[in-house]
Design a protein around this nucleic acid. Structure first.
Length: 98
DNA sequence: GTCATGACTGAAG
DNA sequence: GCTTCAGCCATGA
């Protein structure tokens, strides 16, 4: 894995303002590769290997939270992100527009 | 080298 | 809302 790409993605994640969320596909597009959403997810799952980033502000295209990551909901609520349900954020209200 | 897996996406039922 | 199917690609066995 090219670290250049990793930091490029992480730097975008870092720009997500508090109270907003972004999707994997959106980040992939911002880094110039619309078909690499999966890579973004991979990198974030191992983000601790590269540094500390607000990866909880990144959700899938439907606003669904990461399965098995129980603390993500709490982290988002703490930043004022509106929750639609236990497993989804109100993506329509807090979607990050760059 | 091959195969299965996964924090994804979009279309379709 | 849900699942299934078909693309995408890096990682680990």
């Amino acid at each position: 894995m090219d670290e250049q790409k990793v930091y490029e993605i992480l730097s975008v994640v870092e720009e997500i303002p508090s109270g907003k969320v972004a999707t994997y596909g959106q980040i992939a597009r911002l880094t110039g590769q619309p078909n690499q959403a999966r890579l973004v997810g991979r990198i974030l799952s191992r983000a601790d290997h590269y540094g500390d980033y607000p990866c909880h502000r990144v959700v899938n295209h439907a606003g669904r939270l990461v399965p098995g990551w129980s603390s993500q909901k709490s982290l988002l609520e703490a930043e004022g992100v509106p929750m639609k349900s236990d497993t989804h954020v109100a993506i329509n209200s807090c979607k990050w527009e760059s």
